[in-house]
Design a protein around this nucleic acid. Sequence first.
DNA 1: ATAGGGTTAG
Length: 461
Amino acid sequence: MSIVGFGYCSIIADMLVLAYVKNSKTGLALEAFERAGDYGFRLSISSCNPLLNALVKENEIGKVEDVYKEMIRRRVAPNVISFNTVIHGFCKAGKLQKAVDLIEDMRSWGCSPSVITYNTVIDGYCKMGKAGKMYKADAILKEMVSKKIQPNVVTFNILIDGFCKDDNCSAAMRLFKEMKRQDLSPNVITYNSLINGFCNEGKTEEASALLDEMQDANVKPNVVTYNALINGFCKIGMLKEAREFFDDITDHGLIASIVTYNTLIDGYCKSRKMEDALVMRDLMLENGVSSNTCTYNCLITGFCKDGNRVEASKLLDEMEEKGVRADIVTYNVLIGALCRDSESRKALRLLDEMFEMGLKPSHVTYNTLMDGFCREGNLKAASNVRMRMEREGRRANVVTYNVLIKGLCGKGKLQEANKLLNEMLEKGLIPNRVTYDIVRDEMMDKGFIPDIDGHLCNSPP
DNA sequence: ATAGGGTTAG
């Protein structure tokens, strides 16, 4: 075959990879990418980048790395978009250091990090959810400014959302003012992050004020804006106001989403208004929106809290009938309900069922079970659950220790409880409000002075 | 062809 022939074949291979990506057949696209290499066809960047992007969207970080390495091996030079996409993949997988290292690598390929590169990494830190994450995000921001790359609206949106999720709306508001000072116009995403942040702090007045402000600024609220407000008002028990926002959605020519319905259904469930919750679910079905796992989880939780395990299990059957898969949350709710009814043995069987269903139990699962056994005074079973959790690669977290310490206190084993308290501190786990309450109510009240750092005896930070 | 917002469990 002539060189020209190879050229044509390469173009066709490109088209094939692109076509598969466009039709969401990423597995086939990856196969076409590999085959093209076997035949010696050189794919172009215009098909490799969409493939990388599709793999990132499907959280296939291992395959993203494979494709990236293979591109270099086949001398398909990555460009700034390839790097940004791979960096996004690392961030989504929580591999922040690898993401930062790639920023350095891209320079040796003649690519300069762009505002998108930095925004991606800043967002990665914001979403890591660890203490001091905003400090790291801020460090990247400073680095980008020092490299003469100006933050844009997206940069501010990422940071504002990060601070809001860190329960620091005042820091978010300072950034909001700063972006306006820099003549960057807040958009609907900026307002949505702030409204959601205030709603999660229970500050619905501030959230409503922002809704007014955005309308004055001619930024149109969308369904996400209303969902955040509905959630905020539901959480403080103002169901009537939440329902009014639901009506506003249609009044403004918008369409309520599955999240809108789920949020309101959950609000009714949490306010012990199961009949309203069911009316809302009927309305949702009437409007052509079908229930998903989250809908069922909210309703099942509601019925369980109401002590109505019969209705809860009817819904579980309905899920199976309709082909809506139970997830980790469904199981955790059911396990919690059984444990509350002192049926921890039955709950333990659900743990086995989770593995059969291919679900990986979370910390919540194990902690809930341990709490159930502790409350039944069965510390041996609780400790077995802990061993099983650690065998599955989950390390004890603050809630695990709280549950076990409370269990030991309940049996009057203050000395052993104290040992666990020390163990958690040694492991660098930071006691929370619940830990302090246990120490105060269970240990100090019984005249036991915890043999630990003095700061624990004082009031919580 | 690359970056940002809304719902459920301890």
